[in-house]
Amino acid sequence: MPAQETINPSATVPSFPAVERYRYVWVWPGDPALADPDLIPDMHQMTDPEWAGDGQLIEAGCNYQLVLDNLMDLTHEEFVHTSRIGQAELSEAEFITSHTDTTVTVERWMLGIDPPPFWRKNMRDKFPGFEGKVDRWQIIHYQAPSTICIDVGVAKAGTGAPEGDRSQGVNGYVMNTITPETDRTCHYFWAFMRNYCLDSQLITTQLREGVHRVFGEDEAMLIAQQEAIDANPDYEFYSLNIDAGGMWVRRLLERMLAVEGRPPVAPVAVD
């Protein structure tokens, strides 16, 4: 304090436990005694030297659970992202959902398909002049409460990617972690990491800008969804088989809230 050697004892501000990890700052706004760095979700691809990439923040005009719903069902790519990553095979492919007390996984493989433009470009970055069919995967890893890391990629068809050999392919990780702000807004942090052409800032920039355009399509849909929910507060969600991943996320969140003695937070309008 200027012109004094002491600090006024009542000149205090609140402090919160915080840990910097995976290029994010993790803050515990609740009971500081419960702050446990071991509970930070695994997003190691953000800082692992085997991976490269960058991301952005979306100030999303919707409840955070709508973002989670959207990420847990990637068949939306066929409808929301028709030009770059969507393709009919997404809705036709089988998927397997599994869960634990704190995680939900949805795995989908599309074998022997034509790569959509985004993935053809990525293949050609690693395999110049690549032509032909690919095996495509999407493995969605939800970690409670609101982190979703999606293992995505394509490999030359029939080269063993489903069995674990991805050497003939390109692999990305879509990192998403969402901080609720109000019941109708959230901070949506995302990044796209890759494990090939690690030194290319060009590719980092292209991927970030490309995903930025794709996520802009999601943002428009999410805002419209929130507005529709606000306009029709009594309208019921109609859940489909494909919503199993999102339904498990909601069930785990409700249980975590119940353990804390709090009512479930549903994205409904409040007058």
Partner: peptide, 16 residues
């Protein structure tokens, strides 16, 4: 178990 409609329509209770 996951489920919704409980009448064989939504497919959420699907098991392998």
């Amino acid at each position: 178990m996951m489920f919704d409609c409980r009448k064989g329509e939504c497919g959420l209770c699907e098991v392998r």
